[in-house]
Design a protein around this nucleic acid. Structure first.
Lengths: 203, 203
DNA sequence: GTCTAACGTGTCAGTCACTGACGACTTTGA
DNA sequence: TCAAAGTCGTCAGTGACTGACACGTTAGAC
């Protein structure tokens, strides 16, 4: 059992990370993202500004950081789809990972306010879109690999896989808007379904 | 002739703005966006840092600023489409405005390097995506107005118009990638056509 | 033509996100 | 038990940006 647990060091690190994120997000939701300084956050958790930056690379990351983990899961999910599956279908299943992640029961109460925060704060929106874009880059690479493995590779400059991917993620954003517009009354998954039903690949 | 010309003041303002943009973009392409400071730019055009910020709100804006004008034109173009036209068709025509704007003969030589700069610089990519997102917000509003005027309004939380719009702009991004991947050999308009041919609205 | 109000500019000081370096303290593992 | 490694606060510094002030220029009324 050389690797039994994450180790004490790693555990405390995660605990501190979570505590900073929790305090910061509360402040962000209360006062707004821009109006909250790193010093405010550092003060709220009783540490120095420098130490906050030892846990989060940027202020943005305090809000958007956990997204990276979800994105990893999404890529893993895509890799596990059957190679011959319709691209559009695979993409729908990839989004399912994000959906279930945002339905995590632990802090359900924060999901909607954080969502709104991201869409209402220009900086955060930009960062979120950027992350989604890089995610799409990774997805496109996987799709290209998959097509090549199936014996019908895409041309190097073929915009098709990226167009499909971008459309799917566009549906995600449309669904998020729709979900927020309905005051989170309907299911998020339902919004994604409705969005993805409006467009699709051409035969 | 009370409003003959933009006036001397306005003219010099535009000239200085253009000069700063030209110098800055040269530096950005040479050294990279992050590696170029505002002081560098100010020095290159012989003015103070403070004055540069009197012409551009942010460093990002020096690169992405003119985009706002193109976006205005795109919205105007959308307003002039026939109200009964297929949404997807209208969107294709909206993108035409951007295409012809990037084919402007004046500084054709800069279009490709700037394009690459934006896609290779995380900050600029984020800012670009953010602008495109706000553009989509405006497009969606117009589409909703149009549908309402035609007597078949969208439901408030209907993700359809946003999904279609997002898909169209996703095709734009896919086309830009494809265009850059082919070393700008093919036409940009052609790349957009190919991207938009892969997906479309469902009956 | 003159005068005044508006405008453009440089300078200075300040905020905020972020980074590197250092020294003190704590934990880990041989 | 001791040395390597990790954590932390402090300090100093950079770079994007902002507000305030004083100075010179210019536009436009008269």
């Amino acid at each position: 059992m050389s690797e039994k647990q994450p180790g004490l060091r790693e555990r405390t690190r995660r605990a501190v990370t979570a505590e900073i994120a929790a305090s910061a997000q509360r402040l962000f939701v209360e006062r707004g993202f821009e109006a909250t300084t790193i010093d405010d956050i550092a003060g709220a958790v009783g540490m120095s500004q420098r130490s906050v930056f030892r846990y989060f690379a940027t202020k943005e990351d305090i809000v958007l950081g956990k997204f990276d983990l979800v994105m990893e899961d999404m890529l893993t999910a895509l890799r596990q789809r059957p190679p011959g599956e319709e691209v559009w279908t695979s993409l729908r299943h990839v989004l399912d990972v994000l959906i279930s992640a945002s339905e995590a029961p632990d802090k359900q109460a924060l999901v909607e306010p954080i969502h709104r925060l991201v869409f209402e704060t220009p900086t955060l929106l930009a960062g979120y879109l950027q992350k989604l874009q890089y995610m799409q880059d990774a997805v496109v690479v996987l799709l290209q690999d998959r097509a090549e493995a199936a014996g019908r590779p895409y041309d190097t400059a073929d915009p098709a896989p990226r167009a499909l991917t971008a459309a799917a993620f566009g549906c995600l954003l449309a669904a998020q808007h729709s979900w927020l517009a309905s005051d989170a009354k309907s299911t998020f998954a339902d919004a994604v379904d409705r969005a993805m039903a409006t467009i699709g690949p051409r035969a």
